[in-house]
Each structure stands twice: as C-alpha cells, then as structure tokens.
Simulated assay, not measured.
Amino acid sequence: MKYVALILFFISTSLSFSQSESKHKCISEFDRFFDKFSVNPDYQKAKILYPLKLYYIYNLTTGEQKTKVFNNYKEWKFRDFSKDNLGITEDKKEFKVTIKTIKNKKLYKLKGVDSTVDITYWFEKIKDCWYLTRINDKSRL
C-alpha cells in the first residue's frame, strides 16, 4: 500500500511539473523572454529557479551581508521590470539599466541615478530556457 501511494505521489508531482512547463514554454532569445518575464506574474514565478537567494547589505558600517531565500513561488512577490527605464517623468530617469552577458548568463543591473539603488538580477540559460537564479542588492538605503 505504501508503494502505491508513493508511486501515485510521484506521478502527480511529475504531471503538475510538466503542465507548468508546457503552460510556460521556454523562450530561448533573452530579449523576448525578458519582455514576457517583466510583465507577466505567472510566467515570472514559473521562470525563477527556486530556492532563489537574495544577497543584501545588512550592516552599512561593516558591509556585512545577509541572505534572504525564496523557497517557492508563493514566497515571491511579482516585480514589474517594464518601467525601470522610464522613471517618474520621461525627462527625469530614476534608474540606469545595463545588461551584461557572461557566457550563458545575463546580468540585469539596476542603478539609481540620484539614489544608492544598486541591484543585479542574475538570469541563466539552462537547457535552452532562461531563469532568474540570483539577486545581489548592494543598495545603501
């Protein structure tokens, strides 16, 4: 009986994973992936590699860092990336966005123009699919 329950559990888990993957198909071109990732909450949550680690500065004096871990999609809050380059008004940009390529990774860097915001989102291409894999927050708030 235990074995039947165990087998049923694995089958249901694999079915839900394959349904999730088919619902959110891979986009191998980063720009197209990021356009969808930026504005679609369900797609964004599906394209994060959990557990996702956010490294941030805990103590401004010593520079001591801490880590916050998002273990699953329920812990992640949607982040709209679509307005990062716009700022409050079109003539005043609040952030400068740069994207750096390192092999199969894209580093999306968000830097405050008149603030200490300094956040890097690490995206990695794994088996022809892009995922958010890490966040480094060096902001001094």
Rank of each mutant, 00 (worst) to 15 (best):
L6G: 07
L6W: 11
L6C: 14
I7H: 03
L8V: 07
F10L: 14
F10K: 00
F10R: 00
F10Q: 01
I11F: 09
S12G: 04
S12R: 01
S12L: 05
T13M: 08
S14D: 03
S14I: 00
L15K: 06
L15N: 13
S16A: 14
F17N: 02
F17V: 12
S18I: 08
Q19P: 00
Q19Y: 08
S20L: 15
S20D: 13
E21P: 01
E21M: 09
K23Q: 14
K23P: 00
K23M: 15
H24L: 06
C26P: 04
S28W: 01
S28P: 04
E29A: 14
E29R: 11
D31F: 02
D31M: 02
R32N: 13
F34I: 03
D35S: 05
K36G: 06
K36C: 04
K36H: 00
F37N: 12
F37C: 13
S38F: 12
S38G: 11
N40S: 13
N40Q: 07
N40F: 00
P41M: 03
P41C: 07
D42Q: 07
D42L: 12
D42C: 01
Y43V: 08
Y43M: 12
Q44E: 04
Q44D: 02
K45L: 09
K45D: 06
K45G: 08
A46L: 10
K47L: 08
L49V: 00
Y50M: 01
P51E: 10
L52V: 05
K53W: 00
K53L: 05
Y55S: 04
Y55V: 02
Y55A: 04
Y55F: 05
I57K: 10
N59Q: 12
L60R: 14
T61I: 11
T61H: 09
T62L: 09
G63I: 07
E64H: 04
E64M: 10
E64L: 06
Q65L: 00
Q65W: 04
Q65V: 02
T67I: 15
K68D: 09
K68A: 09
V69P: 11
V69A: 09
N71Q: 05
N72Q: 04
Y73G: 08
K74Y: 05
K74M: 10
K74A: 00
K74R: 07
E75Y: 06
E75Q: 15
W76D: 01
K77V: 08
K77Y: 07
F78A: 03
F78V: 09
R79L: 12
F81T: 07
F81L: 15
K83T: 10
D84M: 08
D84I: 05
N85S: 15
L86E: 14
G87A: 00
G87P: 01
I88R: 13
I88E: 15
T89D: 15
T89F: 08
E90T: 10
E90G: 05
E90D: 12
D91Q: 12
K92Y: 03
K92V: 06
K93N: 10
K93A: 05
E94S: 10
E94M: 06
F95V: 01
K96W: 07
K96H: 14
T98L: 11
T98K: 11
T98P: 05
I99E: 04
K100R: 09
K100M: 02
T101K: 12
I102D: 14
N104Q: 13
N104S: 13
K105N: 13
K105P: 02
K106S: 06
L107I: 05
Y108C: 02
Y108I: 12
